[in-house]
Amino acid sequence: MATVTFVDESTAGARTPAWALQIFEERLTLRELIRRRIHQEVAEHNAASPEPRRLLVQPTSTERALNGDRGEQPRRRVDPQRQIALAEQAFRGNGFVVLVGDRQVEELDDEVDLRRDTEVTFLKLVPLVGG
């Protein structure tokens, strides 16, 4: 079993905190690795719910009408299949590159070796101004 650590970076220097995912296979295509990452992220997003409002003093109906009741808005669900399609399109369009360890993976169907502590970096390419 491999622990794959995902890191998002951009050529502008931004870096998000890393997070890990357990994967049982030793080899996967980049397409499958992206699919699993997105499924995990979407599942976590869709499962999260805003904290119920537990206010000591509740707003009156007039206050709610004027200000809106922001705590009652339903969370928008995300479709994982759509996100996967968008990610594959971005990869093919050079929106980002993927590094597994120190090796760049160039095709979605390329297989990658997953070892015990594999780091996968998604490097978002930021276009140059005027270019």
Rank of each mutant, 00 (worst) to 15 (best):
M1S: 13
A2K: 02
A2Q: 04
A2L: 02
V4T: 10
D8C: 04
E9N: 10
T11Y: 11
G13A: 07
R15S: 07
P17W: 02
A18C: 02
L21Q: 15
I23W: 08
E26L: 02
E26G: 14
R27L: 05
R27C: 03
L28Y: 05
T29I: 08
L30V: 02
L30K: 02
R31Q: 12
R31L: 07
R37W: 12
R37G: 07
H39N: 14
A43D: 15
E44R: 14
N46V: 06
A47H: 11
A48G: 02
P50I: 08
E51I: 05
P52S: 03
P52D: 09
R54S: 10
L55C: 03
V57M: 09
P59R: 03
T60C: 06
T60R: 04
R64C: 00
R64N: 06
G68V: 01
D69F: 05
R70L: 13
E72M: 09
Q73T: 03
Q73Y: 12
R76K: 15
R77P: 01
Q81V: 08
I84M: 10
E88D: 10
A90W: 02
R92P: 00
G95H: 08
V97C: 02
D102V: 01
R103D: 10
R103F: 02
V105S: 12
V105M: 07
E107R: 15
E111L: 02
E111D: 08
V112D: 03
V112Q: 05
R116P: 02
D117L: 05
V120G: 06
F122S: 01
L125D: 06
L125W: 04
L125N: 04
V129R: 10
G131T: 06
